[in-house]
Design a binder for these strands. Structure first.
Lengths: 168, 168
DNA sequence: CGAGAATATCTCAACGTTGAGACACTTGAC
DNA sequence: GTCAAGTGTCTCAACGTTGAGATATTCTCG
């Protein structure tokens, strides 16, 4: 079996044989990138089937799992969604227009804006997340559970070393 | 040890306990996404230090590893870079302006354009790739080689199942 | 040989993100 | 109480990508 990354490594081995011993990280990291592409494609299709954007689904899930009253400040959504402030403003604008969230100005601190799920989107998000989990499980179907656990653990190690910080 | 993905899973477990058994794919796939972010950040910094864009480095490497005469058609670069035709045209425009590549019209088929490394960029790419490998190795330093091999193998399985096709 | 299908690249408007700066509001020190 | 520093959100221009369509060239067959 040989995939696109193997082909890349073969080419480099051909062209720079003396570097071959240093190519092993490519096996892992290039596949992370490619796997991410595939994942992205699936997520995009998943969202599009429901007239949503990937980023919008992300916001819905983030708000839903934060628990009642399903509201977070714009500032809290920035690290959760891993985008910049401008992007959050845009997304919320769009989602508000669609009736997926509403902006609620805080009485205590009038600078902050709470982004809250609407009644409609709370219901929507329930089934959305269940479908999402089903899609995720399908993507991992080719792997046995033990391998999945090993990979997940290895990635956790890398994330911690790489400075990926917990949010909450 | 607990990372951002653990926090997400904990939240969902709290909010939808009945879905907890279906959350395990998130452990792996969400970490793929986050790892990809970190990787992207490193690559961006790596490129920026050298007055390049990530996409430009990608093209340089693709052309270099294709072997002499270090030239590929625009069409061949599209699947290799995993972008659309418009993006390739733009990148090549920019790289041509920087003197990193040159467009050579084919004598046989005047529709095709060969993108070729310049003498200067061939030399540049040699050390660039060596530095790149060093950076990759550093990123994987927290993992022992056996684990890396396991993860790489698992990802290969997923990529094949996900329809990631070899290029070359 | 000629017409239509196929192929390769480029064009361009629409889109989402970035990131610096603006703006409004709050906090802390004096 | 006042002022400066700090904080939270929004604004906006620049940027790169997408993806459909335009253009030019080659191939295929009648």
């Amino acid at each position: 079996m040989s995939d696109a990354v193997d082909a890349i490594i073969d080419q480099w081995t051909q062209e720079r044989p003396e570097l071959a011993p240093g190519l092993w990280p490519v096996e892992l990291l290039a596949r992370i990138q490619r796997m991410n592409r595939i994942l992205d494609k699936h997520l995009k299709a998943f969202a599009a089937e429901r007239d949503l954007e990937v980023g919008e689904v992300d916001i819905l899930f983030t708000l839903r799992r934060s628990g009642p009253p399903y509201a977070l400040t714009a500032g809290a959504l920035i690290p959760a969604a891993m985008v910049t402030s401008g992007a959050i403003t845009n997304r919320i604008d769009r989602m508000e227009a669609k009736g997926l969230v509403e902006r609620v100005r805080d009485g205590q601190d009038r600078r902050t804006v709470r982004i809250r799920l609407t009644e409609r989107s709370i219901a929507l998000t329930e089934s959305l997340f269940e479908d999402h989990l089903r899609q995720y499980a399908e993507l991992l179907a080719p792997l046995d559970p033990a391998t999945c656990a090993t990979v997940a653990e290895a990635l956790r190690t890398l994330l911690e070393a790489g400075g990926d910080t917990s949010i909450t």
